[in-house]
Amino acid sequence: MDGTRTSLDIEEYSDTEVQKNQVLTLEEWQDKWVNGKTAFHQEQGHQLLKKHLDTFLKGKSGLRVFFPLCGKAVEMKWFADRGHSVVGVEISELGIQEFFTEQNLSYSEEPITEIPGTKVFKSSSGNISLYCCSIFDLPRTNIGKFDMIWDRGALVAINPGDRKCYADTMFSLLGKKFQYLLCVLSYDPTKHPGPPFYVPHAEIERLFGKICNIRCLEKVDAFEERHKSWGIDCLFEKLYLLTEK
């Protein structure tokens, strides 16, 4: 054995408090879109979701699917093309516009009456609605409950000090017999300040354990050449399924 860690023996890093005071403002996230600093976007979609999607959907149609901090995630069109209703929230209007443009979807925009100064973008087909606002303002819009949440790049982007508020927001959107698919990253948080932030299993239990059954479905090596600039040499991604207790 050469000592290389595999996707099945990932350790939890003990120094989980080192990132707790890290803060990125909404304006800084918007600047990332304006300046093209969106390496977190996956042009081909998320491979773990693609692998498990049909198993999760079980042939159902007409589900309501929520994408927190959606950006221009191509997976939104995957669900819409399968007959589901997609709702996303994203602070960057540019990111939302790029989604519709890159997916060749016509759309309209209208003000969100409950949140002055914000807009919702709706596909002409009517099954994709993307709200351009802070996720913490979203419950004011009465958008209803969801059958499924796809959380990739959301919890790991939320400032650590806001995670409890974020989890409570997610709980307010969950319908009966929900499936909450959650991706988190595992790396040494003493070497990279984030975002994306390190979210250990214990944190998921703390945030969601009282209401959800929590199961880790898969762990994969997600390290890429660009991650060397973070000062790390190891990065794993974990896919969790959260269901109603």
Rank of each mutant, 00 (worst) to 15 (best):
M1H: 03
M1G: 12
M1E: 14
M1T: 12
M1I: 15
D2L: 08
G3R: 09
G3W: 13
G3K: 05
G3L: 13
T4A: 14
T4Y: 15
T4P: 13
R5S: 12
R5M: 11
T6W: 13
T6S: 14
T6Y: 08
T6Q: 03
L8W: 07
D9Q: 02
E11V: 05
E11D: 15
E11K: 12
E12I: 06
Y13S: 13
Y13H: 10
D15C: 07
D15V: 11
D15P: 12
T16N: 10
V18R: 09
N21T: 11
N21V: 13
Q22C: 14
L24I: 15
L24D: 04
T25P: 05
T25K: 04
T25S: 14
L26C: 13
L26D: 08
E27I: 11
E28L: 09
E28K: 14
E28W: 11
Q30T: 12
Q30R: 07
Q30K: 02
D31S: 13
K32V: 13
K32E: 10
W33V: 07
W33Q: 08
N35H: 11
G36H: 15
G36R: 13
G36E: 13
K37F: 05
K37L: 13
K37P: 12
K37C: 11
T38A: 09
T38P: 08
T38M: 06
A39Y: 15
F40I: 06
F40V: 06
H41G: 08
H41V: 10
Q42K: 14
E43C: 11
Q44T: 10
G45E: 06
G45Q: 07
H46L: 05
H46E: 06
H46Q: 06
Q47S: 08
Q47W: 11
Q47L: 14
L48G: 11
L48T: 09
L49G: 03
L49M: 13
L49Y: 06
L49I: 05
K51P: 08
H52T: 10
L53D: 04
L53R: 05
D54W: 07
D54P: 14
D54T: 15
T55K: 11
F56R: 10
F56W: 09
K58S: 14
G59L: 10
K60Q: 13
K60Y: 11
K60T: 13
S61M: 09
G62N: 15
G62V: 11
L63E: 05
L63Y: 07
L63V: 10
L63N: 06
R64P: 01
V65E: 00
F66M: 13
F66L: 08
P68F: 00
P68A: 04
C70E: 01
C70L: 04
G71E: 04
K72D: 05
K72L: 02
A73E: 02
V74R: 10
V74G: 05
E75T: 03
E75M: 09
M76F: 01
M76G: 01
W78V: 11
W78N: 04
F79P: 00
F79C: 03
F79M: 11
D81R: 05
D81A: 08
D81G: 04
R82L: 14
R82H: 12
G83D: 02
G83L: 01
H84M: 10
H84F: 13
S85Q: 14
S85C: 14
S85F: 12
V87S: 10
V87A: 13
G88L: 00
G88Y: 04
V89A: 12
V89F: 08
E90K: 05
E90S: 06
S92N: 06
S92F: 01
S92G: 05
E93G: 06
L94K: 15
Q97L: 05
Q97A: 09
Q97R: 11
Q97C: 14
E98P: 01
F99V: 02
F99M: 05
F99A: 02
F100V: 01
F100T: 01
F100Q: 00
T101Y: 09
T101E: 13
E102L: 10
Q103P: 01
N104G: 11
L105V: 12
S106C: 03
Y107R: 04
S108Y: 09
E109H: 03
E109S: 03
E110A: 09
P111A: 14
P111G: 11
E114R: 06
E114T: 09
E114D: 07
P116D: 12
P116E: 08
T118C: 05
T118S: 14
K119Y: 07
V120S: 08
V120W: 03
F121P: 00
F121T: 01
K122A: 03
K122N: 04
S123G: 10
S124I: 10
S124D: 13
S124E: 08
S124N: 03
S125A: 08
S125R: 05
S125G: 07
G126W: 03
S129A: 15
S129G: 04
L130V: 13
L130R: 01
Y131C: 04
Y131V: 03
C132G: 08
C132A: 13
C133T: 12
C133W: 00
S134L: 01
S134A: 06
S134V: 00
S134C: 06
I135Q: 01
I135D: 00
I135C: 07
I135H: 03
F136M: 04
L138P: 00
P139Q: 14
R140S: 06
R140F: 02
T141E: 04
N142Q: 11
N142I: 11
N142S: 06
I143L: 13
G144Y: 03
G144L: 07
K145V: 09
F146R: 00
F146K: 01
F146S: 00
D147M: 01
D147L: 00
M148N: 01
M148K: 00
M148G: 03
I149T: 05
W150P: 01
D151E: 02
D151Y: 00
D151P: 01
R152M: 07
G153V: 05
G153F: 08
G153I: 02
L155E: 09
V156A: 07
V156G: 07
V156W: 09
V156E: 05
V156Q: 07
A157G: 08
I158P: 00
I158M: 05
N159I: 02
N159E: 06
G161R: 12
G161F: 08
G161I: 07
D162A: 09
D162C: 09
D162S: 13
R163D: 00
R163F: 01
K164N: 15
C165W: 14
C165R: 14
A167M: 07
A167D: 00
A167T: 07
D168V: 08
T169W: 07
T169D: 02
T169C: 09
T169I: 07
M170F: 01
F171C: 10
F171K: 12
L174K: 02
G175R: 07
G175M: 08
K176F: 08
F178P: 01
Q179C: 00
Y180Q: 01
Y180P: 01
Y180D: 00
L182D: 00
C183R: 04
V184T: 15
L185S: 12
L185A: 03
S186P: 04
Y187T: 05
Y187D: 05
D188Q: 06
D188T: 05
P189M: 10
P189L: 04
T190W: 13
T190R: 14
K191G: 07
K191A: 09
H192S: 06
H192Y: 15
H192C: 03
P193L: 08
P193M: 15
P195K: 00
P195G: 04
P196L: 03
P196A: 08
F197A: 09
Y198G: 06
Y198V: 15
Y198W: 06
Y198C: 05
Y198F: 15
P200A: 06
P200N: 15
H201R: 12
A202I: 03
A202R: 15
E203D: 14
E203Q: 10
I204R: 00
E205S: 09
E205I: 06
E205Q: 10
R206V: 07
R206A: 14
R206N: 01
R206M: 11
F208P: 00
F208C: 03
F208A: 03
G209Q: 15
K210H: 15
K210L: 14
K210V: 05
K210F: 14
K210E: 04
I211K: 12
I211F: 15
C212E: 01
C212P: 03
N213G: 12
N213D: 12
I214L: 07
C216F: 14
C216P: 15
C216M: 15
L217D: 01
L217F: 07
L217R: 02
L217A: 06
E218F: 09
E218A: 12
V220A: 05
D221E: 12
D221Q: 07
A222M: 14
A222I: 04
A222T: 14
F223E: 02
E224T: 11
E224V: 11
E225P: 10
R226D: 15
R226Q: 15
H227G: 07
H227T: 15
H227I: 10
K228V: 14
K228R: 14
S229A: 15
S229F: 13
W230G: 07
W230M: 07
I232R: 05
I232C: 05
D233L: 05
D233H: 15
C234T: 11
L235K: 05
F236A: 15
E237W: 01
K238W: 11
K238E: 15
K238L: 02
L239C: 08
L239E: 02
Y240V: 02
L241E: 13
L241K: 13
L242T: 00
L242A: 02
L242S: 00
T243W: 05
E244D: 04
E244V: 05
K245M: 10
